[in-house]
Write a protein that binds this DNA or RNA. Sequence first.
RNA 1: GGGUCGCUAGCUCAAUGGUAGAGUACUCGGCUUUUAACCGAUUUGUUCUGGGUUCGAGUCCCAGGCGACCCA
Length: 569
Amino acid sequence: MAADTNPAQSTLADIRATRLEKIDQLQAEGMNPYAYRWESTHHAAELQAKYADLAPEAEVEDSVAIAGRIMARRVFGKLAFFTLQDESGTIQLYFDKKRVTAHMEDRPNAFNLLKKLTDVGDIIGVTGTIRRTQKGELSVNVSTYTMLTKSLLPLPDKWHGLTDTEKRYRQRYVDLIVNPNVRETFRRRAKITAAIRRYLDDHDFIEIETPVLQSEAGGAEARPFITYHNTLQMDLYLRIATELHLKRLIVGGFEKVFELGRIFRNEGVSTRHNPEFTSIEIYQAYADYHDMMALTEALVTTAAQEVLGTLKLQYQGTAVDLTPPWRRVTMHDAVREATGVDFTAFEALSEAIAAANAAGIHVPDDCASIGNLLNEAFEQKVEATLIQPTFIIDYPLEISPLTKPHREKAGLVERFELFMVGRETANSFSELTDPIDQRQRLEAQSAKKAAGDVEAHGVDEDFLAALEYGMPPTGGLGIGIDRLVMVLTDAPSIRDVIAFPLLKNTSAAIASADYDAEKKILKVTFNQGSVYHYNDVPPDLYHALKQAPSLGQFFNAQIREQYGCDRIV
RNA sequence: GGGUCGCUAGCUCAAUGGUAGAGUACUCGGCUUUUAACCGAUUUGUUCUGGGUUCGAGUCCCAGGCGACCCA
């Protein structure tokens, strides 16, 4: 069907069909709608900077080549203006029919093809010279153009863009095309991690990659993802921390190691949590947690200077000053300041609970110790108030199983956490190096696991063996990269700094359900093609399913969770 | 897990329980200085899904899905 006999079109399917038709026409003209290569001389932002002082209607004969996506078209009879966007920014393309025709000699209808066969969203390359138009817009005065990639799907509204959060996350590529600030966020994220790595490299730290798949999850209290290795026939856990392996490297003789990488925790999703997130853990032999405080200040300020050029920033309307040194407060003092309760004064847990209740602190039913209650009080009454960067130091031993006892304060450990904008952003200790003490603490954890705590883990015997060979005194530091990036990019949600955040699948609709009465197997075929067998489903339930007004809802409510299943296809 | 809000054309959004609309995009026509180009014309729907109430449901009720925010 030729374009001029097409009926009026506007549904998505029609738009796509029209563009497929344009692909045929491009090919008929000998133009490849999916080109192989293009060589540019500049990016848009470079040209904007280089010719910033060019006067309106002035033209220079410098020839340039540039490529990008067509974001807007303003087409006249013998003249056309396109807005071209590349990674760096945008520049206007000025197409004059006479000029294009003169330069593309082998294609006398080049200008008409441009008008007919290009759309907003297409990726093209052009050559030409630089001029500023009468209206003052810096432009490439195009000599030749080349279709590089034909786009089939329409972009969101040119003015309102894409605002639907769900679509922005599910189709981040569209978000990136139309929302330049989103591109900027991820550019900054890359600069932050690069700056951190550069700093560490400059200070003789080396990055060593440790296993993601582990036979025992450890190094933190968190619920792990479990997977299965078929040929080895073993359960494996996705790591919840890099701690225990990096410490093995310290035992092995490396003195400064780190790993910046992905951590997986089988937990909920919120503005501050994604089930996979990025941390950096750093270990330095012969150092303690005071050294780690200095390192934390150095890393965060280096990253901030890199992306912001300043240590004074705004986060969601609140001023934050990263100028070191940052405030250092013990957890006891912080809680005393906020609640008036001095948790160092108690001998018995019952006294502490009474005081906590009187101070309006919610006491959890399973509160096991004064230290736990102190931490509870901190989380409830202090954490959210710590807007400026603050080191909370000297934690209770019972919530810090990998940390060396405090050299002066009984019952406490040498640990700090960094808080900014009301959130935990880093965690650090003088690492526990005593293998006997470490064994006792891990066995206590293991007992909690046996008692049903899904966030506790078994004893990592190999890690203990490593400690028995002897680990030098060591300072360790972990920083939540996503949360740091949030602060430095003014992002309200962790999803704004993760390119492809985890979202729930829209559940697949059921295409059909069959029943094997003899084996009591319900065979369910879903629309996306997968087939599951649900075992031991009673016949009555199948009949009820068949008669239910909604197959899917009955299935979800009565069968999906209640019966075991095998995936067949 | 609980609460609040949202889901309507590709996108951004309207629509007292009474004919599903606008802008933009798309298609066609016009135009040599536009930049949210302009002018004219045509067209665009599983109103998230399934039930229910009703003469009649985008709207009311029930259940479910997905998302956002808050709380635990």
